[in-house]
């Protein structure tokens, strides 16, 4: 099948590649660019393991063609950490609040939460739950993911994080 040349900015770096028109963005990221942090859990846009940020919006990269991302700016889990290499507030929050277990949903969940906090820096619990409802987790029951996002929100906003009472 004929291939198309595409360019985009991924995690701040200009990248390019040759893809079939049908190549999915997630396969371009994982296989051409070797950015394997973005995962595939369902291939039907339900689970959100493949969530990346495309021009400032969360998308599920298993149902976006790579050619659709031509000229766009992509942020994946590999671009989330702080510039000095330390864990970003969200990454730290997931660890401190035990917001992950097997780690398979985690990259998509963190990238989604990153966008959520850009849009709503101090979300309520209900807003967090709705905001991550496109991302499935089979291990944690979500409760600690919610706390992880609250932790990050507080850290970024310079407010005090108080763990919700059990």
């Amino acid at each position: 099948m004929a291939k198309t040349h595409i360019t985009m900015k991924v995690n701040g770096a200009e990248v390019e590649g040759l893809v079939e028109p049908r190549t999915l963005l997630v396969h371009f990221l994982r296989e051409t660019l070797s950015l394997t942090g973005t995962h595939i859990g369902c291939e039907t846009t339900h689970c959100g393991a493949c969530t990346v940020d495309l021009d400032g919006k969360s998308v599920k990269s298993c149902t976006v063609f790579a050619v659709q991302a031509e000229g766009s700016e992509i942020l994946t889990i590999e671009g989330i950490a702080n510039a000095d290499g330390s864990l970003a507030a969200l990454q730290e929050g997931f660890r401190m609040m035990h917001g992950l277990q097997c780690g398979f949903c985690t990259p998509g969940m963190i990238v989604r939460a990153h966008r959520l906090l850009q849009e709503n820096p101090a979300p309520t619990e209900a807003e967090i739950r709705m905001g991550i409802s496109g991302n499935l987790c089979r291990c944690t029951g979500y409760q600690n993911i919610v706390k992880a996002i609250q932790y990050a929100s507080a850290k970024v906003n310079g407010t005090e994080f108080r763990e919700a009472a059990e």
Binding site: T36, L100, T106
Partner: peptide, 21 residues
């Protein structure tokens, strides 16, 4: 104790089977 696994998992640096190339 906080999990040692989380350092790699939160950065997308886990190594799952489909990552093997």
């Amino acid at each position: 104790r906080k999990r040692v696994e989380d350092i790699r998992f939160t950065q997308g640096k886990g190594n799952y089977v489909d990552d093997v190339k």
